[in-house]
């Protein structure tokens, strides 16, 4: 069983506990705002959120105790640089999807994710990703009528 460190509270875990309390408070606040008419069920639209909020708060307490005891499994040090590449890829794809079309937007996501895993150069992955996405676009959008946004590249051919 994990022993942990009894002297120092596990700070990140305390942050989780705080997030759970915040979520519970948010649910209670939003639910109180609702205007509810009486129903025959007696259990209206408010009870379920309240139960969930109560559960979250109780689990928050449990998490505080776990943090103080240091009973969470140990975590290895992680690198956030690679993650940032991937998140950037997802954000850019989301923003330019409508204008640039599926292939180019997904090509960028593909290239930046590959970069996140250490693959260089980005321009080459971008080319590969765009061609790959374009083939997928042809297959699914043209062949199987799935609606995927078209951009300048797609319009060039179809």
């Amino acid at each position: 069983m994990s022993t942990g460190n009894p002297r120092r509270p596990d700070r990140p875990v305390l942050v989780i506990a705080a997030a759970l309390f915040a979520l519970a408070a948010l649910i209670v606040w939003q639910t109180r705002e609702m205007q509810v008419a009486a129903t025959y069920a007696r259990v209206g639209p408010r009870q379920f959120p309240y139960v969930v909020a109560a559960g979250l708060a109780a689990l928050g307490v449990g998490t505080v105790i776990a943090a103080l005891r240091g009973s969470f499994p140990e975590r290895e040090k992680e690198e956030f640089g690679p993650m940032a590449w991937i998140v950037a890829g997802l954000v850019i794809q989301m923003l330019i999807l409508r204008t640039a079309g599926f292939s180019v937007a997904t090509g960028i996501l593909f290239a930046l994710s590959a970069r996140g895993f250490g693959r260089r150069p980005v321009w080459l992955s971008f080319l590969i990703g765009t061609v790959f996405s374009f083939l997928i676009w042809i297959l699914f959008a043209r062949g199987l009528q799935l609606s995927l946004p078209a951009g300048p590249l797609e319009r060039l051919f179809f």
Binding site: L139, R142, G143, L144, Q145, S147, A150, F158
Partner: peptide
């Protein structure tokens, strides 16, 4: 299968 489905002409008229 793909060619079968492609029998539908391309240019999008209505979405």
């Amino acid at each position: 299968a793909f060619i079968g489905a492609m029998a539908v002409p391309a240019a999008a008229d209505y979405t």
